[in-house]
Amino acid sequence: MSLPPLFDPVDVTGQADPFQRACAMARAGCDAGTVLYDLGATRLRAALVFAPEVPLRDAVVMLPLCGVGFQNALGALAPPEVGVHLQWDGGLRLNGGLCGQLRIAASGTDPAADIDWLVVALDLALWPQDEDTGHTPDQTALYAEGCADVAPQDLLEAWVRHTLVGLNTWDDAGLASLHRDWSGLAHGMGEDTVVQGLTGTFTGVDERFGLLLKTDQTTALIPLTDLLKEPT
């Protein structure tokens, strides 16, 4: 596994869910930059451990940052006609179909508090679950979308590298570049959707990537911290 300096790869293929194991290792005090991965036959799963020195409400931008990193990584490896789009909730879409998911967890839940660690995990389908894809027209997989030559390890390495570039840009120059890049990839912006039981139009995100949902009565703000998962 060829990763940038300060990243430490940990192979858990066939042993554990990288997301859950990463959260456990982070709680135990592992270093930021730990990368756990499971290069399975049908799925690529991986998790990155971060140690952001900002409050949780600012640190959760690691989710869209990792999404843009994934798009940049696959964009460099896949044929140019393959379109990658990002859902606000971490969903990853290839050519319109849902192909994977990013998840996020942290050491705390108070948006204003500093945190000890944060984990972002990638779960990507390599092959469709069902050979008859007509049963799940909204679902797809990497190799069903013209990416048969993309090796999972190459994609994982590229994801880490491009995420590091985004992390350095965020650290040096703030969120402007990330906002611009993510908004150009956002799936469903301007369309009607349902989020947390609210129905409205997804009009964009605020400065901290909270979702703006315009309803008949008002515009609701759903903070990105609402997407935090509880690791088991």
Rank of each mutant, 00 (worst) to 15 (best):
T219Q: 15
M189D: 05
A148M: 13
L3G: 04
T215E: 05
T169I: 11
A22C: 01
P137Q: 10
S177W: 12
D89Y: 00
A46Q: 11
A176H: 13
G14D: 12
D216P: 09
L156K: 01
K229N: 05
G204T: 07
G174K: 04
T169A: 14
R93Y: 04
W88E: 04
L86Q: 08
P4H: 11
K214A: 15
V160F: 03
N72R: 15
D181K: 10
F70Y: 04
P152G: 09
N168A: 11
G40M: 09
P152R: 11
I115K: 07
D192S: 15
R208M: 10
S107L: 08
L94P: 01
G40E: 08
A186F: 00
N168S: 11
L39C: 06
S107N: 07
H187P: 02
W182P: 00
L6N: 11
L227A: 04
A24H: 07
L164A: 07
P80S: 13
I222Q: 05
E230K: 14
V205E: 01
V35E: 04
T218V: 08
T169R: 15
D132Q: 12
L102Y: 02
E191N: 11
D192K: 13
D132N: 13
A76V: 08
V54K: 12
P55D: 11
A59M: 09
T140N: 08
D171N: 14
P111N: 00
C66H: 14
G174L: 04
D110W: 01
D31E: 14
P128I: 05
V150E: 05
T13N: 11
G166D: 00
G29I: 09
L178A: 07
V119Y: 02
P223Y: 04
V12F: 00
L211Y: 02
F50E: 03
G69T: 04
A148Y: 07
S2G: 13
L74C: 07
A121C: 00
G83M: 10
D216E: 15
G69K: 02
D110Q: 11
T42I: 08
W170F: 10
M25D: 15
V84F: 01
S107I: 06
A125P: 02
G69Q: 01
G204N: 08
A158Q: 06
L142P: 03
R180P: 03
P18H: 10
A32F: 07
Q153N: 09
N95H: 03
L44P: 03
N72A: 13
D149S: 13
E230A: 15
V195G: 01
V68G: 05
G200F: 05
D38R: 13
C30L: 01
T201C: 14
T163R: 00
G210V: 09
A59Y: 10
V195A: 03
M62Q: 13
T42E: 15
G96I: 02
A76W: 01
G40K: 10
V60G: 03
T232A: 14
G134H: 09
A106W: 06
C30H: 05
L92T: 00
P223G: 05
I222R: 09
E207T: 13
D89P: 03
L65D: 03
V84M: 02
L44H: 06
D181M: 11
R45T: 04
D149N: 12
F50A: 03
V10H: 09
P18K: 12
D38A: 15
A32H: 08
S183V: 13
W170G: 01
D130W: 07
L63E: 06
